[in-house]
Design a protein around this nucleic acid. Structure first.
Lengths: 117, 117
DNA sequence: TAAATATACAACTAATCGGTTGTACGTTGT
DNA sequence: ACAACGTACAACCGATTAGTTGTATATTTA
């Protein structure tokens, strides 16, 4: 369960850790684009862009749909949201830390009320 | 400007694209931990953990503070939030796409009111 | 002062990554 | 039928990664 989740997190963050792939995500979230239409936008080979699309697809960040001879890529916003929620989980841990510090301060001011300001 | 931002995004996503580093982040967001205290938690050498901490520090996800002979690491929640906001930006592009689709539907139902359901 | 602890860093290795070129195959248009 | 287009995939290459071991340097503590 958690093992699979961590693998998925690895794939998601790794997929987003590349400029070209983040740029592809911007385009395919805004609308469908064929792989060759995407490839035309970057100064690299078609195969290189195809690999980037494959990385994003394996991570679940986009899906492909065949239309004739072209493959139309479309961004999956729920995958983007799942990454965001992982970050929110991290933030919650930090909130817990702050809450604990606040408790300490509350205890301190209750024990030594003359130290309040 | 954007060049630096993309480099920062590369570093942030790459830093989070590793289980051990995400786990370190959970611990240091919840509270301060020395590098050796962290190292004791994982089945790898001290040097390996030290490198992971260095990657997180370079990305700005944690800061270190010297206390005697130990180095206390503390998670930086604002860096975590900056990653979350990048994802929100991506999500906005998707919202734009949906808005455009809605406009098309509105135009269509206005032009062909008999096709409504 | 000497031993133990905590860190830093260099050098090495196997694996992965991001790119290339080349080949093959189905689909479309002439 | 055939040329052009869009895609898939394998093989290769240099750079980077995640790990290791070993050594050096402060800081405690006995």
């Amino acid at each position: 369960m958690t093992e699979i989740d961590e693998e998925r997190a690895d794939a998601l963050f790794h997929a987003l850790a590349d400029r070209t792939r983040r740029d592809i995500m911007r385009r395919v979230l805004a609308g469908e684009h064929s792989v060759s239409a995407l490839a035309a936008k970057y100064d690299m080979s078609f195969a290189a862009v195809q690999k980037h699309v494959a990385v994003l697809e394996k991570a679940g960040l986009l899906t492909k749909r065949r239309n004739g001879r072209e493959q139309l890529a479309s961004g999956d916003v729920t995958a983007v949201r799942s990454v965001a929620s992982m970050l929110t989980e991290l933030e919650q841990l930090w909130r817990g830390r702050i809450a604990r510090i606040d408790e300490l301060i509350a205890f301190d001011t209750a024990t030594h009320p003359d130290q309040e300001n």
